[in-house]
């Protein structure tokens, strides 16, 4: 059975379609990339997958997360599913962390919740240890110091590592990474990608990776879906789609990426 199975998903704002007739499925341990330019409906698809669409947007079709229908299900019933089935890492780590809460306390929240949900609540000391361990797991140096810091006292890369640690704290089966490296510089980007790659492999999670950055996608996932104005224009294994793009839009994406690369090299 698929972990996440999306069929004929459409998202409307008022009468305007933002995503139309999108279908894909993701099984345990699989990695899927959603590619498209900004405004193509990538992030909305991720939010719809967890039933977190902003008010004013309506979804139709079918989203099965761990066999549970998400569309049309009341929030309260989804709360239990969310903590365990899927977690999201966002693009901008600064807004993904509460600015007024120490990092350690923020990270302890989902850890404690997951433990309670599993029926083995953690003592304050055990929670503290679990929190420090979670910080070490995302390769943050000096966890006790980081735990006491506020988000604004950390670098972008450190913040993103914490956001990843928080997402993993619920031990989800599916990790949704919504442009997790876009706000970071190139070196940090590579580190974060390696980290996500390692963690997904170690924990045998499924990964839904959203990006407009083709090389990043190519190295991270095995299958891709190319979105344009809310419609899937192409889908398949990465190697196939990237080697022989069939759709004009995919070709133009590649051409743009190549032009950008050439321009960069020419400029050096």
């Amino acid at each position: 059975m698929s972990l996440l199975s999306i069929e004929n998903l459409s998202i409307h704002a008022g009468g305007k379609p933002l995503v139309a007739g999108l279908s894909f499925a993701l099984a345990q341990g699989e990695r899927l990339g959603l590619i498209g330019e900004s405004g193509s409906g990538k992030s909305l698809t991720a939010l719809a997958a967890t039933g977190l669409l902003p008010a004013g947007l309506t979804a139709s079709g079918s989203v099965l997360l761990k066999g549970q229908q998400v569309i049309g299900t009341p929030d309260r019933q989804l709360d239990g599913l969310r903590g365990t089935a899927a977690a999201i890492v966002f693009q901008e780590p600064l807004t993904a962390l509460d600015p007024l809460m120490r990092v350690g306390k923020q990270l302890a929240e989902p850890l404690a919740r997951r433990a309670r949900r599993d029926g083995r609540p953690l003592s304050p000391r055990a929670l503290d240890a679990a929190m420090l361990e979670a910080l070490a797991e995302v390769a943050l140096p000096d966890p006790p110091r980081i735990a006491r810091a506020y988000p604004h006292e950390l670098s972008g890369g450190q913040r993103q590592r914490i956001a990843i640690a928080m997402a993993l704290a619920c031990r989800p089966d599916l990790l949704i990474a919504d442009e997790p490296t876009t706000a970071l510089d190139v070196t940090t980007q590579a580190e974060i990608l390696t980290l996500i790659d390692r963690l997904v492999r170690e924990k045998d999670m499924a990964l839904l990776f959203i990006s407009h950055d083709l090389p990043v996608v190519a190295n991270t996932v095995s299958h891709v879906v190319v979105l344009r104005q809310g419609e899937a224009v192409e889908a398949g294994p990465v190697a196939e789609v990237f080697a022989r793009p069939r759709h004009d839009y995919t070709k133009s994406l590649f051409a743009a990426a190549q032009r950008f690369d050439t321009a960069l090299e020419g400029g050096q």
Partner: peptide, 29 residues
């Protein structure tokens, strides 16, 4: 509309809890 609220929601936080630990402290200043 901040991402940390959505992140808390994804991890299964309930609304009353989000109001108590994220919203009130952030609007308090």
């Amino acid at each position: 509309v901040m991402d940390y609220i959505t992140a808390a929601r994804t991890s299964g936080s309930s609304w009353p809890k989000i109001v108590a630990i994220h919203i009130l402290p952030n609007i308090w200043p």
